[in-house]
Amino acid sequence: MAGGEAKIDALGQFKLATVLGPLGGSVNFTQANLFMVLGGLLVLALIHYGMKPRAVVPGRLQALAEMAYGFIDDMCHEQIGHEGRRFFPFVFTLFFFVLMGNLLGLLPYGFTYTSHIAVTFALAVMVIVIVTGVAIFTHGTTFFTEYFFPKGTPVALAPLVIPIEVISYLSRPVSLSIRLFANMVAGHVMFEVFATFVVMMAGAGLLGTIGAIGPMALNVALMGFELLVAFLQAYVFAILTCIYLHDAVHLH
């Protein structure tokens, strides 16, 4: 963002562009994908280098890797139950994919791929497709009757209950993706806006420079808040996936 004729362009940061020169351009490889690869490599590197000592008493990095493992493992176990083991790698991948997107976006020159509704919606749809697949695989077609028309419901209410349940079910990926998307976009838009304020005010002489401390401090505080949100949204995404998986395995 150029300092001189600063105007609020809060959305430019979300613009996609191909990276890696003509090679990336020819296959439409965007910076979002670059950061996905980066995030994935970071997670793999953490585990690989963390677990290299294979120590019984873990060092710092190994403790971090083990904490990540234990955190998701516990989440699966708590939310899904014994069957949670099977879904553990999936939930782990999902959590860290989202977390890395959220966190890398907070770095300078970072790109938040989780701020793209297309990405979050694709993730959410994937989750719902997998959840539905698990439900059908586990319970067969009884899943549909069980889920969309629960036992004990008066038959007369069927025309009301079934559409509501279907809408409710289909709204899962929407709410899942909108929540993550909205949180990420809001945070980054505010960063950009406050940062632009800083630049604009600093360009307006001494008084403005002093006044620029305000939005600057706000941005620092916001950074802390956004770190929290980054983690929390990844957590929410993962735990809701676990809850949906629980419902799929146990039918409510």
Partner: peptide, 23 residues
């Protein structure tokens, strides 16, 4: 499933309502 800060709850309720309406 998820309890939390008032702001978190409000956000969650809003998202649920809006997404159901969107669908």
């Amino acid at each position: 499933a998820l309890s939390g800060t008032p702001w978190g709850i409000g956000m969650r309720v809003g998202t649920e309502l809006v997404s159901a309406m969107v669908v």
